[in-house]
């Protein structure tokens, strides 16, 4: 555990991420290109939902990533509160906008899929409402990062909010089992295996890998920017102190 924490120091992360980032971005581009080709030109139309099934190929990965990034933030929040690890709150801060965007994509594509299939863009049922709550929690976390200037104080406040909000993640996952909802039950990540035909499952899984690599590349980029922002803040303070000292010495002379 100690060696894992040593490995995750900001300087090592900057070096490692500079080397990994182009590979993640390139792999994401390949998986997304292949996945989109399969989703549009190879996967058949659904016998019930027709061509609208193609919305599934972005709606489902977006939903998975919105929950995955929130779960990653909860782990980071734990790292911030328990170990006070310097990279934990950096990881958490960089993940929030990415998770929020995937939650938004999930809600918009879900509404656009719902209208032709259910006859409505929106219903206040458990699955849809809990995903909307997830988006609102993400926005609350982003806002909290912005209102608190001191990064370490902000990190602890955000970590507590993140852990409290984590209760929503299992609610999203099991909402379709616990309550009667318009949304269909899980058909990929379920006990007993997927119920989707392989001709649709493969494009979905390839796109899910592509979107995950893309999101991880963005996360690395965001973490790098956040580490540099903190370094800029420290150096600006040091420079201001140095200039103050020089001004005081000049006045004394």
């Amino acid at each position: 555990m100690a060696s894992l924490i040593d490995l995750a120091n900001p300087t090592r992360f900057m070096r490692l991420s500079a080397a990994l980032l182009p590979w993640f971005a390139a792999a994401a581009a390949v998986f997304l290109a292949v996945g989109l080709y399969l989703a549009w030109f190879v996967a058949p139309a659904d016998y019930q939902q027709g061509e609208t099934i193609r919305i599934m190929f972005i709606h489902v990965p977006a939903a998975w990533l919105a929950m995955m990034f929130y779960s990653m933030m909860a782990v980071s929040a734990f790292g911030t509160l328990v170990w006070r690890h310097p990279l934990a709150d950096v990881a958490q801060k960089a993940a929030a906008p990415i998770g929020a965007c995937f939650a938004l994509v999930c809600l918009i594509t879900g509404a656009l899929w719902g209208k032709p299939m259910w006859g409505t863009y929106w219903v206040w049922d458990a699955r849809l409402t809990s995903v909307l709550v997830l988006l609102l929690i993400y926005l609350g976390i982003i806002a909290l990062w912005r209102v608190l200037d001191e990064p370490l104080r902000a990190a602890r406040a955000v970590a507590i909010l993140t852990l409290v909000g984590f209760v929503n993640v299992p609610i999203i996952k099991f909402s379709v089992d616990w309550w009667n909802t318009l949304h269909q039950p899980a058909s990929v990540l379920r006990m007993g295996g997927p119920t989707i035909h392989p001709s649709m499952l493969w494009p979905l899984l390839i796109l899910a890998i592509g979107f995950t690599l893309f999101a991880l590349a963005l996360h690395m980029l965001g973490m790098r920017a956040e580490i540099m922002r903190r370094r800029v803040r420290t150096l600006t303070i040091l420079e201001a102190e140095r200039l103050d000292r020089l001004a005081a010495q000049g006045a004394a002379a």
Binding site: A45, G50, E51, T52, R54, I55, I58, H59, A62, P97, I98, C101, L104, V105, I108, T109, L112, W113, K115, P116, F214, L218, L221, G222, A225
Partner: peptide
């Protein structure tokens, strides 16, 4: 088919949001 507008709007909105996120990052 008849729901082309919904399908294209889904992909278009996802592309817009994710491109915006990438450019901002």
């Amino acid at each position: 088919g008849p729901h082309a507008g919904f399908i294209l709007a889904s992909y278009g909105s996802a592309a817009l949001i994710l491109t915006g996120l990438t450019l901002a990052a």
